[in-house]
Amino acid sequence: MRKLWITLTYVVFILLLIIPLVEIVRGSWSEGWSGFTEGLLRQQSLHALKMTALIVVIVTVLNTLFGVMLALYLVRAKWIGPRIKRLLNSLVDLPFAVSPVIGGLMIVLILGPSTVIGTFFEASGFKIVYALPGMVLATLFVTFPLMVREVLPVLQEIGAQQEEAASTLGAYSWYTFWQVTWPSIRWGVIYGVVLTVARSLGEFGAVLVVSGNIMNKTQTATTLVYQDVENFNVVAANGVALVLAAFSVGLLLLMEWAKKRKEVH
């Protein structure tokens, strides 16, 4: 009986993870090297990968900055009451609970071209929805809890005493943050960065709704794969998917390494 369960577990594992991966590799090479490069070097593929890279970089920078700041405020700030802190703390998890598609839809409903704010921004020449800013916002929404949830427990665990000690020794907050707090949360932040990169690399639903999926304009790697599949261009879809998968495996390894370092400290 036990053997059966073990076998079943392996079968599910292979079915879910290994076979799709093998299939992607096989699919992208089914027309040989030329088929693979052709699918990947199409103008829309290069543009989509560029968009994805751009979003990943912007989102990761913003999320790291604001995530660490929010974590610091939620744990340390004395001017925020405990009740508001608790409320903010649970609000942070909202993107985990809400489907990304709905997150994207909310952005369209608030900032879309038919809304007051959207019209205002568009009039001043700054398009949000169906453009890069909206896609960044959507991805930011989806990835926001990742950094806060990594940094917050570390801050709670180390406590405020080392920072207080620094203040009695004459150090102000900026110096204290870099000399005392940062070395303690460093690995948590790195882990959060890896998670954010992985999540924003693969984000599909929210971005699809917000971007409108316009080829060579607002198309990302994931939405391109979706479109290629729709158009039965399986080889190209597999090629782009392979690039994404390769990145993900790399990130996974990085994640394992960061996790180990995080535990050491």
């Binding site: 000690a165 009695t168 150090a171 000399q179």
Partner: peptide, 20 residues
Amino acid sequence: LPPQERGIGFVFQNYALFKH
């Protein structure tokens, strides 16, 4: 005055040494 300006030294109960 903030603690930085008071010219005091503080030894914490658990010492709060900078662990890194």
